[in-house]
Simulated scan of single mutants.
Amino acid sequence: MIYDKQDRAIMTQHAGLRTIKNSFSAQGWMFTKYDRFGRVVYTGFFPSTASRASLQGDVDALSSNPANNEARSSSSFSSDGMDIFYTQNAFPSANIKVLSVNYYDTYPVYSFNPAFPASVMGQDVITDSQNAAISTRALPTVSLVKT
């Protein structure tokens, strides 16, 4: 296991990931990225043959993002055709394969999001665009898992 300066497990590896005989056909590590509230924002696979000690040293030496947090972003990066509306600043930040994404507070802008109804059973609905800071603050809104 590899930990960041906030004592969060950010990377794990089991014996199968030390070989290429796994579902990724590469040696590597499973990673978890967090936001500033400690919520898991996305997880995935990081191909690397580096040792635990070497990677832990890289994490300990972080200077550009010492808190090692990700943040929501209005623009996205793509992982295997999936748009991810988070920054890609926490370790590891390159050559990653995202396997799950969690959104909180507001809904991300995906083409498959359903339209908000104007009312439910005769009651007006608070939409995401009206006042998301009140209606969904601190709540999970969307979780996506690669299959």
Rank of each mutant, 00 (worst) to 15 (best):
S74R: 07
N102L: 10
S54F: 12
P47T: 06
E70H: 10
V59Y: 04
V109G: 02
S78M: 08
S100H: 04
F116D: 15
R72Q: 08
Y104T: 07
A132N: 12
V98W: 03
A138F: 14
F112A: 12
K97G: 05
L62V: 00
D105I: 05
D128E: 06
T87Q: 07
G122A: 08
S111I: 06
A50D: 15
N69S: 11
R137P: 02
D105L: 07
F46N: 05
S51I: 13
N68C: 05
S135E: 05
D60V: 07
Q88Y: 02
G122C: 05
P108Y: 09
Q88N: 15
F45M: 05
T87W: 08
K97E: 12
F112E: 14
A132Y: 12
T49Q: 12
P66D: 03
S51M: 09
F45Q: 01
F77H: 15
P66W: 04
T87A: 05
S54C: 04
S75D: 13
Y110T: 06
I96G: 04
F85C: 01
Q56L: 09
G57T: 15
V125L: 06
I134M: 12
T87N: 06
S63I: 11
S75H: 04
S73A: 15
D80S: 14
P117C: 02
D58C: 11
S51P: 08
P114Q: 03
R137H: 08
N95Q: 09
T87V: 03
I84K: 00
R72P: 07
Y110R: 11
F45P: 00
L139Q: 07
F112D: 13
N69D: 15
D83H: 05
S119V: 02
L55T: 05
P47Q: 04
Q56P: 02
D105S: 09
A53L: 11
D105C: 06
L99F: 11
S74F: 11
A67I: 00
Q56I: 12
S63M: 12
T136V: 01
S48E: 08
A94H: 12
F91C: 00
Q56G: 10
S76K: 00
R52M: 11
S74Y: 08
A53W: 01
S54A: 15
N68E: 07
M82K: 12
I96C: 03
A133E: 13
A67G: 00
P66H: 00
S74T: 15
T136A: 06
Q130Y: 11
S135W: 03
S129G: 10
T87H: 07
L62W: 00
V120H: 07
D124N: 14
Y107A: 07
L55D: 02
Y104D: 05
N131G: 15
V120T: 10
N65S: 01
S48I: 09
A50G: 10
G122Q: 04
D124H: 10
N102I: 09
Q130S: 14
S75F: 06
E70N: 09
S79L: 04
I134H: 06
I96H: 04
N102C: 14
N102A: 15
A61R: 14
S93P: 01
